[in-house]
């Protein structure tokens, strides 16, 4: 994948920084297609709770995931700063609802460290590593793990 290639060359990696509650997360720009404001989302029945539905992204029907719910964080009503990050891993394209998307940073690939032992509330498998810049701690996400379709099917849908 693009990010692991960047890791091995020990060069700079451009990342998009976004927020969930008080933590800052990062996704490589190579995986991000665009950042959208919140718009009408059509609910898709019988899907896991973190799948908010689908929206029309310039003619393409795109599934939308609420990252807070995906990571098991508390739900929050959407605000003016809420953004949808359209990201793609392999042939899967989805929108990720985040609290805010506020920055683009260059990080040194060799400054990425493995996740510290004491993890937060997020299951560590979604995390590629952490980066410390000045006093900020960025959590680098592994998008493929976030979108793991097996988990989508395995999660308890509301059968009826």
């Amino acid at each position: 994948m693009a990010d692991s290639a960047a890791l091995s060359t020990a060069s700079e990696l451009k990342v998009i920084i976004f927020q969930l509650i008080d933590k800052e997360y990062a996704l490589p720009v190579s995986e991000v297609r665009s950042i959208e404001k919140l718009q009408h989302i059509t609910r898709v029945p019988k899907t896991p709770g973190f799948v908010k539905g689908v929206l029309n992204l310039r003619g393409v029907v795109t599934p939308i995931i609420d990252l807070r719910l995906r990571f098991g964080l508390e739900q929050q009503t959407y605000s003016e700063s809420t953004r949808i990050i359209i990201a793609a891993a392999q042939d899967i394209e989805v929108g990720l609802i985040v609290d805010a998307a506020n920055d683009v940073l260059d990080i040194q690939a060799d400054s990425i460290e493995p996740q510290p032992e004491v993890a937060g509330s997020i299951d560590e498998e979604y995390i590629e590593g952490v980066v410390k810049i000045d006093k900020r701690l960025l959590i680098l996400l592994n998008l493929e793990k976030v979108l793991n379709p097996e988990e989508l099917n395995g999660l308890p849908g509301r059968e009826g």
Binding site: V44, P45, T47, V61, D91, E93, L152
Partner: peptide, 23 residues
């Protein structure tokens, strides 16, 4: 199509975009 992420939603065969831009 619903996109490859949601390809197997129950009793939904696909989606369409209406005149108001909604799905």
């Amino acid at each position: 199509a619903l996109g490859s992420y949601l390809h197997s939603a129950f009793a939904i065969s696909g989606a369409t975009i209406l005149g108001d831009g909604q799905v």
